[in-house]
Design a protein around this nucleic acid. Structure first.
Length: 464
DNA sequence: GGAACTCGCCAC
DNA sequence: AAACGTGGCGAGTTCC
């Protein structure tokens, strides 16, 4: 493949070996947990949950549920809820789970428009915070410190995973959940929490594999924005701006661009984009006043204003966007997808630039995704190893304390901050490219830092 | 009474 | 022909 050298298998082994040692040192350091806050919040959450449950028990909705299941009634049982909604009340399922049971997840419940179900969703959310996150901290802490494990041997793509507790799925998007959970987490005493995130690394690494000229142009020009461009097409926005149309942009990014790169197609993408709209049903005619409020009206109204009458009508529109994506702008990318899969069928494996081989029965989607997902994470792992090495060679007090796929989480000694932060940037954006010449795209990072002895909710952007 | 499963939900 | 990927974990359910 051109003149770019892949890493050898022994280099891949070395990455695993050095990575395991560096991550073990991060595990040993761990993160401080404010146990008093944690216990206090647990009590407050329990009170709120009890209050909401009592309110729910008063509703006719619950009384009928109770009547059906008698002494076995359990508001936490989705099996009961599904039976009650779709068999007893005979409501229409908007979609089903893998095993054919009527879905009872947040989206499915919202589409039913039953106010009592909002109580149930609120209860679910608070229980998740309490029972998964706070209880996890309490169970796993040793003298007020948690030591999340980071595994390099469990994930099919040679990414990492984390457990006991999982440090890689702490709430971030939901403000209430984020505040409660991340308020528990502190760096070492007298230190500052720091996160160094690769910006759009998966798309950039995808560019290294796809070698599509238009894709590379998008990556090289910081003013261009593929997700915004697709959003403006998918949602018919004339003068798109990142600030004004941020919601549409993330819908396009997560509902179209990435799925298409990993083998999805327009029908699923149309449904993904619709899914981002909340309560809008995915089938049949658009009705007024459904979905999140946007531009002063609801999403369904927005759609109708744009001239769409049915979901199927919108699907056809996304088909034209898909056509534009693969035939007009990323033609070379489509060729890459086809030739990679042919190569896999011929030799029985695919390889990452970082020297890993993926064997076994794989779908087209797997073949497209694994090398990119793996190599993108390996950029972070290589950086982590070398930041750790630098810290040890220079006897610094700062420590790596975790890692979330494309971001490095550290406890920084404030006296070392001005010296260390530029070095972290250099390692992650320059040194790595001297070692791995297959990275033909620029890399960039974003850093966030919290004040001394402040918790993980106080992160603010910092330029170094 | 525990293993293995499903479902829902958190992250990238 | 088929239709975005990778995890962990809690609670309920099913199977032995």
């Amino acid at each position: 493949m051109n003149n770019i050298l892949k890493a050898t298998t022994s280099e891949a082994y070395n990455l695993m070996h050095q990575g395991t040692l560096a991550l073990a040192r991060a595990e040993r350091t761990g993160l401080r947990v404010d146990m008093k806050y944690c216990e206090k919040k647990k009590i407050i959450l329990t009170k709120k949950i009890n209050h909401l449950e009592n309110e729910f028990f008063e509703t006719n909705f619950y009384k009928r549920w109770n009547h059906v299941f008698k002494e076995k009634v359990d508001i936490q049982s989705n099996t009961q809820l599904s039976t009650y909604l779709y068999k007893v009340m005979k409501l229409t399922t908007s979609y089903e789970t893998k095993s054919g049971q009527g879905a009872t997840d947040e989206n499915a419940l919202q589409q039913l428009n039953i106010p009592e179900l909002n109580l149930l969703l609120q209860i679910r959310k608070l229980k998740k915070i309490r029972d998964t996150y706070l209880e996890g901290f309490i169970r796993e802490q040793v003298d007020g410190v948690i030591h999340p494990s980071f595994n390099l041997h469990l994930v099919k793509t040679f990414r990492s995973s984390s457990d006991r507790p999982n440090f890689q799925n702490m709430p971030k998007r939901d403000k209430e959940a984020m505040d409660i959970v991340r308020s528990c987490i502190y760096p070492l005493k007298g230190h500052q929490m720091l996160e160094a995130d690769f910006s759009g690394v998966e798309f950039r690494i995808a560019g290294c594999y796809y070698k599509d000229p238009t894709m590379l142009k998008y990556i090289n020009d910081p003013k261009s924005d593929i997700h915004g461009d697709i959003a403006s097409k998918a949602f018919m926005i004339k003068n798109f701006s990142k600030e004004e149309h941020g919601y549409f942009r993330s819908a396009a990014k997560n509902g179209f661009v990435f799925p298409e790169l990993y083998g999805s197609w327009y029908k699923s993408c149309a449904s993904n984009l619709m899914f981002e709209w909340g309560k809008v049903p995915k089938t049949s005619k658009f009705k007024p006043d459904l979905g999140v409020e946007i531009e002063g009206s609801c999403m369904s109204d927005y759609m109708m204003k744009k001239g769409f009458t049915h979901f199927e009508h919108y699907e056809e529109h996304i088909k034209t966007v898909e056509n534009y994506f693969w035939n007009d702008i990323f033609k070379t990318g489509k060729d890459y997808q086809n030739s990679l899969y042919k190569e896999y069928q011929k030799v029985g494996y695919v390889e990452s630039y970082t020297g890993f081989r993926f064997y076994g029965p794989m779908s087209l989607n797997n073949v497209l995704n694994y090398p990119i997902q793996g190599a993108a994470f390996h950029c972070l792992l290589w950086s982590l190893i070398n930041v750790d090495k630098f810290i040890r060679e220079n006897n610094l007090n700062s420590r790596i304390i975790g890692q979330i796929h494309d971001s490095l989480v550290m406890s920084i000694d404030p006296n070392e901050r001005d010296y260390l932060l530029p070095i972290i940037r250099r390692i992650m954006t320059q040194d790595i490219r001297k070692v791995w010449d297959w990275i033909i795209t620029p890399l960039d990072i974003e850093m966030e830092i919290a004040p001394v002895d402040h918790n993980w909710t106080f992160m603010k952007k910092i330029n170094f």
